[in-house]
């Protein structure tokens, strides 16, 4: 039983980090209906820039705001020169544009900082917390806990911000009806700018946490692919959905790996979330928190 909890907790903690990546997608999708394929590249770009700046001799507390600024500017620039000119184009066009964008960002990152794999040290050890082991007899990694804590704070701050405030209301208004949003004087472009800037900042935090865990390398862009089942479970437009979806994916993939894995030769973790999402898609296509899709015939 203790082992079960150990796996479950480990899974939930990594799930929070999936939520973080999924959140970047949700914000942009809500505001502009675009599935931002480049989110993973932004994560990679952020981590690489941060590490690159450290290598240039900048201290941690200087590199952090500098990278944050770079990511916010990157988000704003993408909105301004890629998406705004494509306004009113079909969704597939926008989607293709973000695919192109992802190659561009990946190329740019490697051009600026080189392509070799780097380690990233945030100064948090990946070792079991002694007091938790003593009290509950369960091993919980200190790194996982801190990373999940940071992600949780960010996710809940954004969730509250976008549900309780005027900007949040404006964002939801834009998501619901462009014309009406314009008619009440919501500056669409400002909202898009804010959302892209926030997505850039979220990518930075995700890049640091994932980079510290798995190394700063091209494979970071694939973290974004893990967000896909999270989004299918949680619904593309729901911030709480991204949170719950992330937890489900994180916990279930680890549990499946440990309890089902041995029977099928292991390596389940890689594909289990997708199968789960696929099954879920058949039952509830709109996601856990998505609006029920009603077709009027």
């Amino acid at each position: 039983m203790q082992f079960f909890f150990e796996v479950l907790i480990g899974g939930l903690l990594s799930g929070v980090m999936y939520s973080l990546v999924a959140l970047g997608f949700v914000l942009i999708y809500k505001a502009s209906g675009v599935f931002n394929f480049a989110q993973g590249s932004m994560v990679f770009f952020a981590a690489l820039t941060f590490v690159g700046l450290l290598e240039k001799g900048l201290g941690f507390w200087l590199a952090l705001p500098a990278t944050l600024a770079v990511m916010i500017v990157l988000g704003l620039v993408i909105e301004r020169i890629v998406l705004r000119p494509l306004i009113n184009q079909p969704q597939i066009t926008l989607f293709m544009a973000t695919i192109g964008l992802s190659f561009f960002i990946e190329g740019l990152a490697q051009l600026m900082w080189g392509a070799n794999v780097r380690g990233l040290e945030l100064g948090i050890q990946d070792e079991p917390l002694q007091w938790v082991s003593d009290v509950a007899g369960v091993n919980v990694s200190k790194f996982d806990l801190v990373a999940a804590g940071i992600a949780a704070v960010l996710v809940s701050t954004l969730a509250i911000f976008f549900s309780r405030t005027r900007i949040g209301r404006a964002l939801r208004a834009v998501a619901d009806d462009h014309q009406a949003a314009l008619a009440v004087g919501i500056p669409l472009q400002q909202i898009w700018g804010i959302v892209w800037a926030v997505a850039g900042a979220v990518a930075l935090v995700a890049g640091l946490l994932w980079g510290a865990r798995n190394g700063v390398q091209f494979a970071l862009t694939f973290v974004a692919l893990k967000a896909l089942p999270v989004l299918i479970l949680g619904g593309f437009e729901s911030i709480p959905g991204a949170v719950v979806g992330g937890l489900i994916v994180g916990a279930s993939e680890k549990l499946a790996e440990v309890y089902v894995g041995p029977y099928v030769g292991g390596g389940i973790e890689g594909w289990f979330p997708y199968v789960l999402a696929l099954l879920f898609l058949l039952v509830r296509p709109e996601g856990l928190f998505g609006e029920k899709i009603i077709r009027r015939i």
Partner: peptide
Amino acid sequence: ALFKGMSVLDNIMTGRNLRMRTSFIEHA
């Protein structure tokens, strides 16, 4: 053209958008 996902109150509040003086940036 209402904001279907929102409550009546929130819909009407969006109408006051321009009556609120703080800009979105200040607001943040």
